[in-house]
Design a protein around this nucleic acid. Structure first.
Lengths: 342, 342
DNA sequence: CTGAAAGCGCTTACAG
DNA sequence: CTGAAAGCGCTTACAG
């Protein structure tokens, strides 16, 4: 049978009020009482009931990590890091996996009502959902891999990669390698600026323009879920529409891995016939055959800064931060340099 | 401001007792009252306070999922499924990632004292740790991917694949394909029967014997963490020790993916020079180039049965179950059939 | 079928 | 410094 604060009170000879004060390190307890109560607590191996405590304090349950997408290996690696860091700080972490297209803010609102989490960490997020409903959330939150700066919420920090800049770099790199017939897969570019994919596309467009390359979104872009099967299918569609394509930019490594397999299954070689470039820099990308060329997002920094920021804001009255984390391109073996046409 | 059951009572014109009965689907409520109360709940977007509920019901905090290993993609896929199923049942899930070699039972004991979880789901586990300390855990628990049958705990179910049988099938398959110089990587075979790797090895040994194939563990086996980098390194070691090897059995797909990359980097082709066969049947294995031949563990069944079992045992007095889930081999493109020597 | 009331284990003004 | 007591939001016998 679990002990309660009442048992400790009885055993120690003090009241439950005093026991509670000892447990919560209140200053106004005599040294004598503190010693005695602590001894009994140790003897009885007593642990306060967190339900009662939280009910009374109107406080809050575990920090909740909301992961958008079941099959996105990039988020999985961040999740593992975030949970481990939270754990090292003595914070429990609840996790909710959501469909990639689900409304993560609605989910957070529901969880808020039911369990009052201390805070939320979003792995991926659609800014439109935040704009609509995030005001209903009043606990410190962090958005990872997308920037929330433009929203201006005072309880939402964000750490992300400069997606436009990275998108620019990818296309510019392909152009410098001599590619002019380039396809892009992944995300849903049509969304009005709220999605990761959109910002990456903006950067791409700039690089197309600067390099004088034609890009017909209708024809050379194919949306895709952030999954291997999504990448596989959208690549098939893209190549059927554009049989003369020489390079594909998959805006997520998970998508890229599906793309590579599709290219192979359609009888082409990578990179001889079609080059592939990814985005994220997940561990798997270092083991594909051929190795994937990709943009490496700094997972450790993303996780570390996100966790530090939320812990600080949960415990103190710190202001939010919106920060871009540097990225860099990793050259693998999946991009070919084309001969210049004379 | 969050609504309480009191607000719903006031707004609906019924008492809080009746509201509570509606929420908990008690039978003795008039249809009329049920409709009215449910309508108000919907209108107000009311969520019961789980702290109060759990306090009253003397129940406990979230079901905790303990994942052994940070980089094992097989566990990641089960984790996502388990969390989603728990969520659909209205159960919150806390997650703790541990190092592959950490003591998961000690971790569970610590978490028990601090938060009294309703139950534990272990993704992977070392039977030796369970034997030593699991008696200290008194909540319903489930071990996934390893069998706990021999331990006889009355609060620990287990669902797993018949590892010995599957190991046997792998080696027998390679033998039938004409392979006689076979290497095995992954796990730590030397452990005394407690580890997954050991049971798989037992099955392998049987197949070696039946097929009259030599297997010198010292020379043809290489331990490895369940990670891509682990697979990469152990494959390098194995091939250096056995340059004439024609097939490698990696006892986890994550390991196998590392192995394939290592083989390639050493200048060999798969499967022409060296065949590779994996274990688990993770999604990534369907996208490798070449596609990985592997043993598919039934992830959905593992997750589904594990969750159903723990929910039943949390709420009722059901007995534990120890069940083997059927597996099957998926033939990919990573195993070559050798010409019979005359 | 419904309401009034006790009580889950805790925290925290309040009074002394 | 300490105790008695109210109350957090819920569930559930009990009485009607």
């Amino acid at each position: 049978m679990a002990k309660t604060i009442k048992d400790i009170a009885r055993l120690s000879g003090y009241s439950i009020g005093t026991v509670s004060r000892v447990i919560n390190n209140h200053p106004d307890v005599s040294e004598e009482a503190r010693m005695k109560v602590e001894q009994i607590i140790r003897e009885q191996n007593f642990q306060p009931n967190s339900n009662a405590k939280q009910l009374k304090q109107q406080s809050n349950s575990a920090i909740t990590i909301i992961v958008k997408g079941y099959e996105n290996m990039f988020f999985e690696s961040i999740l593992e890091r975030v949970q481990a860091m939270l754990r090292d700080s003595g914070e429990e972490a609840a996790v909710a996996f959501l469909d990639e297209y689900a409304n993560e803010v609605q989910t957070a609102i529901q969880l808020s009502a039911a369990r009052k989490p201390k805070g939320f960490i979003f792995l991926g997020g659609n800014l439109e959902f935040f704009r609509q409903d995030f005001e209903k959330i009043d606990v410190p939150s962090v958005l990872l891999t997308n920037t929330a700066e433009e929203l201006g919420f005072t309880n939402l920090s964000s750490f992300s990669t400069d997606d436009a800049e990275a998108g620019y770099e990818v296309i510019d790199y392909l152009a410098k390698c001599g590619h002019t017939r380039i396809g892009i897969i992944g995300g849903s570019a049509s969304q009005i600026g709220s999605q990761i994919g959109f910002r990456r596309m903006m950067g791409c467009q700039k690089a197309f323009d600067e390099n004088g390359i034609q890009f017909d979104e209708e024809k050379q872009y194919e949306p895709s879920r952030f999954s291997m099967s999504g990448g596989y299918e959208s690549t098939q569609k893209l190549i059927r529409k554009n049989p003369d394509i020489t390079a594909i930019f998959a805006i997520g490594d998970t998508i890229a891995i599906g793309a590579m397999r599709a290219i192979k299954d359609m009888g082409y070689n990578i990179p001889e016939d079609i080059s592939v470039i990814g985005y994220d820099g997940i561990e798997s990308a270092r083991y594909t055959i051929p190795r994937l060329t990709t943009i490496r997002q700094d997972t450790e920094a993303l996780a570390k800064k996100g966790v530090e920021d939320i812990l600080l804001r949960i415990n103190y009255n710190h202001a939010v931060t919106n920060e871009n984390i540097p990225f860099h391109m990793i050259e693998g073996e999946s991009v070919a340099t084309l001969k210049k046409k004379q």
